[in-house]
């Protein structure tokens, strides 16, 4: 499908957050029309507030002035076609883009009202505070117990073996894995099935008591049953954490999230309650994408 200029406009006039004037933006954006995000990007008492986030890979402008809040105890799904910037945006939230050469992130990312996008912020405790689960399960080549205990130990969350045991058990229980591994905690984490490994990674993430969990396509390498278990887990984890999930599965976004954000070519096109996005999206691009009419 060709995307004409009119495609990039909302279908109807909505209450929209108008992105700030970016006249001082780098060259790549000078001739670019300022796009408006349809829907309310703000929430009351956000856990994370992103203000005018821009990401550049060298001269390529990957994220273009995105504003978005993440509330407490909610799951925000980020959807969009490949290359739209949803994973790039997700990685901004715990500074994972710092590890990429030539990547530059501008704007404010407030985690509990503290800007984490500054040089003064130590990314090690930040990444405990904002944990991440990746597409492919990546357990350490150590025992199941070690996988979970590693984080709490290096972050000084436990002093004794008994305290570590308690954290390991509670984390594995919250990840829905305890009953399956309690008799083989000394066995390698890499010996578990794909779905179990992913839940082990989630247990490892929550063991360090994060506030936010970022998930980058956490089920794309899993079978439907393992996917269902992870989705059930996401719903339970929401009671304690804020969760941002990037997914290519529209149905998964519809099932697990309370709000959905649609990205397109680095712009945040539309944000809204998941029910609204999947029944009556306001922007044509969103509708075309989720109904399979796009691209």
């Amino acid at each position: 499908m060709n995307t004409s200029t009119s495609d990039l406009e909302p279908k109807s006039v909505q209450t929209s957050y108008v992105q700030p004037d970016r006249t001082a933006a780098p060259r790549a954006t000078v001739d670019r029309e300022v796009r408006r995000t349809v829907g309310d990007v703000r929430v009351a008492e956000p856990r994370i507030r992103c203000n005018d986030i821009n990401v550049y890979y060298g001269t390529a402008h990957a994220i273009k002035g995105v504003n978005l809040d993440v509330a407490r105890n909610e799951v925000v799904a980020m959807i969009g076609p490949s290359g739209c910037g949803k994973s790039t945006f997700l990685r901004c939230l715990n500074r994972m883009n710092d590890t990429i050469d030539g990547c530059r992130v501008t704007g404010e990312i407030l985690l509990d009202e503290r800007n984490i996008n500054t040089r003064e912020i130590d990314v090690v405790p930040l990444r405990a505070q904002v944990g991440m689960v990746f597409q492919k399960p990546n357990p350490f080549p150590k025992s199941i117990w070690e996988n979970v205990a590693f984080g709490p130990r290096i972050h000084g969350l436990a002093r004794t073996r008994a305290q570590l045991d308690e954290i390991v058990e509670s984390s594995l229980r919250r990840a829905g894995l305890w009953e399956e591994v309690k008799d083989r905690l000394e066995k390698p984490g890499t010996g578990l099935s794909g779905g179990q490994q992913q839940r082990l990674c989630i247990a490892r993430t929550i063991a360090v008591q994060p506030e936010v969990i970022l998930m980058d396509e956490p089920c794309s390498a899993l079978d439907p049953i393992s996917t269902a278990k992870i989705e059930e887990l996401i719903d339970e984890l929401r009671q304690q954490f804020s969760i941002c999930i990037v997914t290519h599965s529209m149905q998964q976004a519809a099932r697990v999230s309370q709000r959905t954000a649609y990205f397109h070519l680095g712009d945040l096109i539309e944000v809204g309650a998941t029910e609204q996005i999947f029944t009556n999206p306001q922007h044509k691009l969103t509708e075309d994408y989720i109904t399979g009419r796009f691209g």
């Binding site: 519809a254 029944t279 969103t286 509708e287 989720i290």
Partner: peptide
């Protein structure tokens, strides 16, 4: 097809 949005409507 698991229709959504306008297809669901």
């Amino acid at each position: 097809r698991a229709p959504v949005a306008r297809d669901l409507r």
